[in-house]
Write a protein that binds this DNA or RNA. Structure first.
Lengths: 150, 150
DNA sequence: TCGCAACAGTTTCAATCGCAACAAGAGGCC
DNA sequence: GGCCTCTTGTTGCGATTGAAACTGTTGCGA
């Protein structure tokens, strides 16, 4: 009749998510003073090439107000440029500058290394199970297509 | 050389954690107007019986300021009582009242049902893989013993 | 016994968050 | 064209957050 927090799936996922986040946060924080929304926009734009704020939000699962603020911060660093789309003047085409792309490249290596360092602590079987399990859960929760909050 | 956000483990875990949280939040929010810290303290005290704020923080992986605020809120609802420990007057023994325990019981059923409903969408093999994978990751991240932030 | 570091829990404060309202534009319908 | 609705992105605002400072207490070592 009890619940046992440590066995409750939402709780376990939240703890894992936060622990993982703590492992990688120092990388983008200490190197460049980025926060998580900014880091995600940076990756999203590197993934997508030129894209609108809406695209970035969909690709990085972030609320549009977060995108708006992160884009402004990155723009002030001159890591991205806005160019108004003549076909639809409501939206703007966002593109990483050379400096932005350089910063991205500086961060990707350590990021992947950190991720790999953690995965290395798992047995090959557990790594396989992790891949299977996460994909299955993403399907069960309808996350196969990334959707921004709201 | 790219990173591909949707394959990056910290990102995937964060999305899953948030999606799962959205699935269960309506239960404790709509029934009783609780927020997550309060819900977790409720469960922690039901798990632990009488315990100190520090114990609750360790058991529910929450920062002590969160605990402090959640405990005050639950106290004002008369869902828990504080009793000062004569052996160490720095800490207080927290205990659920009958009303608090009743609320907990009202919530546990729907919570477990929601969790089960999601797990039911997985195949038995995927469910097994999930259990294996989460435990392995918890070990790899040193979460086997629940630790509060900071 | 005194002094001091460690500890439990609270409060202050600045930063972050997301909802809701908003402005500006697009597109459909008459 | 004129009107209405939907969409994109920004901003105002109240709520939530955690780092750091603080209060009161304990226990240890000189």
């Amino acid at each position: 009749m009890g619940l046992t927090l440590s066995e409750f799936l939402p709780y376990r996922l939240n703890c894992l998510s936060e622990a993982m986040s703590q492992e990688i946060k120092p990388i983008y924080r200490d190197h460049f003073g980025l926060n998580r929304p900014e880091w995600r926009v940076l990756v999203a734009l590197a993934d997508l090439g030129t894209a609108t704020a809406k695209d970035v939000g969909a690709h990085s699962a972030q609320h549009k107000t977060r995108i708006s603020r992160a884009v402004r911060a990155l723009e002030q660093r001159r890591w991205l440029t806005r160019e108004s789309d003549p076909k639809d003047r409501r939206s703007e085409m966002l593109t990483l500058t050379a400096a932005g792309h350089r910063a991205y490249c500086d961060l990707v290596g350590p990021m992947r290394a950190q991720e790999a360092g953690i995965l290395d602590r798992l047995s090959p079987e557990d790594r396989a199970a992790l891949g299977t399990a996460l994909s299955a859960l993403e399907n069960a929760l309808g996350l196969s297509v990334a959707q921004p909050p709201e």
